[in-house]
């Protein structure tokens, strides 16, 4: 597995700040690439995997426990899902190792995705009160009062 593999390459690689300034840019950058490869190829992937499995289990039990508390359920599940998605992006998709350039693509996409979602708010939270949409109840249980599903409309 990645963690148990001997370090590569076998000769020590100077840190960028230790590199000889007289060397060409090519040599400096090539060594940095080596270092990056070394770091990337020895990232703690199995620990991340264990973390993802752990958070999936947490999510599963959380949903089971709070299945009847909608607000708590949604808030908690979104929290766990964001943690898991961030772990996948940060470690497996190598956002941890990439330069800033990748965020020039991700941030606009993220902003547009957020705008798209926010643009839907009028459809989510500002619905007109209709016969099929009584504002006071979302769930009712038997025995229902006659006409409970069709409350008097505002006059």
């Amino acid at each position: 597995m990645a963690e148990s593999h001997p370090p590569h390459p076998t000769h020590p690689i100077p840190a960028p700040e230790q590199a000889d300034e007289s060397q060409t840019l090519y040599v400096r950058t090539d060594r940095t690439l080596d270092q990056e490869l070394h770091i990337e190829s020895h990232a703690p992937y199995l620990k991340v995997w264990a973390g993802l499995a752990f958070f999936t289990a947490i999510e599963y039990f959380y949903a089971h426990i709070f299945k009847d508390m909608l607000f708590t359920l949604i808030l908690g599940l979104l929290f766990w899902a964001v943690i898991k998605a961030s772990m996948v992006g940060w470690y497996f998709m190598h956002l941890k190792f990439e330069g800033r350039w990748v965020y020039f693509m991700l941030i606009p996409a993220g902003i547009l995705a957020m705008i798209l979602t926010l643009a839907l708010v009028p459809d989510l939270a500002m619905q007109p009160i209709t016969e099929e949409n009584p504002e006071e109840e979302t769930v009712f249980s038997a025995p229902l009062e006659p006409g409970a599903a069709s409350p008097a409309l505002p006059t």
Partner: peptide
Amino acid sequence: TIQHPPVTPGKVAMWLFLATEIM
């Protein structure tokens, strides 16, 4: 780009594709 892996056209194209997939 000294501190990071090289920015290859393939990688840029893939991230752009993933940005469209996000949408």
